[in-house]
Simulated scan of single mutants.
Amino acid sequence: MAELISFRMILDGSASLPAPRLRSEEQLVAMERTLAVMSDAIGTGYDEFSTADVAFHEAVAVASSNSLIEVRNNVVRGAVLALISDKVAARNSTALMRESLHHHGEVLEAIRARDGLAAARISRRNHYDYYAGYVPEDERGSLLAPVDDDEP
């Protein structure tokens, strides 16, 4: 599980590297729309929130202009969620959804600013914060490895 989540962190971070430089204004608007849907879904439930969350990550991958990034992100995200979907659904409270929305907004701001390094760093850190609780404490080192806490 730890290796799979770590791999997802690396993949999502890698999609966030080129997306800020290659994204179009239309793709940026699509990302903004997914955040608006996530925000609205906080009051309606986790399933709608999760669908919008996935749409955000797909929009970032599309903005990377690399179809292989899109495909691998879908496969790995699907594998992670298949393994822990019951735990994720049970754990997702309104507060957790608000926190997730905030983190996605941070990635969007870095993409808007065309700062790929910041977008990738924020993405990896946010994934760690979200998924670390699903991994036994003695296995979290592999999750921390891709997190660049010492970068500005």
Rank of each mutant, 00 (worst) to 15 (best):
A110D: 09
A15N: 11
K87N: 11
E48W: 00
R112Y: 05
N92K: 11
D53Q: 03
Y130T: 01
N73F: 03
R21M: 15
G43K: 11
D47E: 15
M31N: 08
R72K: 10
A110G: 05
E48D: 12
S123L: 02
D40M: 06
S6C: 12
I10G: 00
A82M: 10
T94V: 14
Y134E: 09
D129I: 06
R21H: 14
R91M: 13
A61Q: 09
R77L: 10
E25Y: 05
I122P: 03
A59Q: 12
R91V: 04
S64V: 06
V80W: 08
A90K: 12
T44A: 07
I111K: 03
A41S: 15
A2V: 07
P152W: 14
R8F: 14
A36M: 09
T34G: 05
L81T: 13
V75D: 11
M1I: 13
V60P: 02
S65N: 12
H127T: 01
S14G: 00
L117P: 02
L144H: 00
D86G: 06
G133V: 07
E139M: 12
E151C: 09
V147H: 07
D149M: 03
P146Y: 11
L11F: 08
E48I: 00
A90N: 07
G133E: 10
V29R: 13
